[in-house]
Nucleic acid binder design. Sequence first.
DNA 1: AACTTAATCAACCGCTCCGCT
DNA 2: AAGCGGAGCGGTTGATTAAGT
Length: 268
Amino acid sequence: MGRQPCCDKLGVKKGPWTAEEDKKLINFILTNGQCCWRAVPKLAGLRRCGKSCRLRWTNYLRPDLKRGLLSEAEEQLVIDLHSRLGNRWSKIAGRLPGRTDNEIKNHWNTHIKKKLIKMGIDPVTHEPLNKEAEAAENHISETDGVGADSLEDNSSTPTENCDNSSTPTENCSSSVGSNSLDKFCNDESLLSSLWMNDEPPLIDASWDINIPAGGETCNGISLPSWEENCAWLLDCQDFGINDFGLDCLNDIELNTMNTLEMADKTVA
DNA sequence: AACTTAATCAACCGCTCCGCT
DNA sequence: AAGCGGAGCGGTTGATTAAGT
């Protein structure tokens, strides 16, 4: 007796989203805002699962998304945050404006992991690899070969190895500081701003109202403008911006866009 | 040019969390 | 307090593209 599926599997489309579907979703959310995701497919006329709609929106269609590869600064930030938070991608993403958890997770798995290994750093514990091997050896000899279970425990995330009652920083000795990340990690102002609160609202969930103007920065990372973010949409050959239904934006949204346009011009 | 392998990333799946009743 | 449903998260998969032979 499993739980009910999140949506009726029958007649629900899967796989890559088409331009037409994107258009419908964007149109719906721009006019109605983000509401009950379960209801979105029906209301938007999509044969998709609500979950799929949410994912598509948050990972790809959201206008506040920064596209393209992570910059060096962002990468360093991800490494540092990962050493503190472990695989909590959404938390990490929350501290990188315009980036999604999926994007960061993918980037971690494809780029950063390899980079760290190459640098001799364990991407899981952020300890030097040789030190890790030594520790593992010591552990095995200490426990007299307890077996796979204990080894599995060792492979848990840094967060899991830390006392949850305090910040990971306090309990996890991040050896990252002994390598090229040193400089970055010692940037106290940046780190303190990151850790001032448990959940600093770097990204306002209500993006559709509080979209930062171009040229603004957050922790030294420049935020993209609405225009920059929408440029890729405009580049789509299959349809223009009007096809997305942007012509039916309500007054608030139009005002927001106008304000942003003005701000961009001022910056330029 | 054809094929194989590697890399990348969008999307899915199953689980947990959280708010509501 | 318990149960339910929706949202969100993290791990994984699979399609596509790029690079190498």
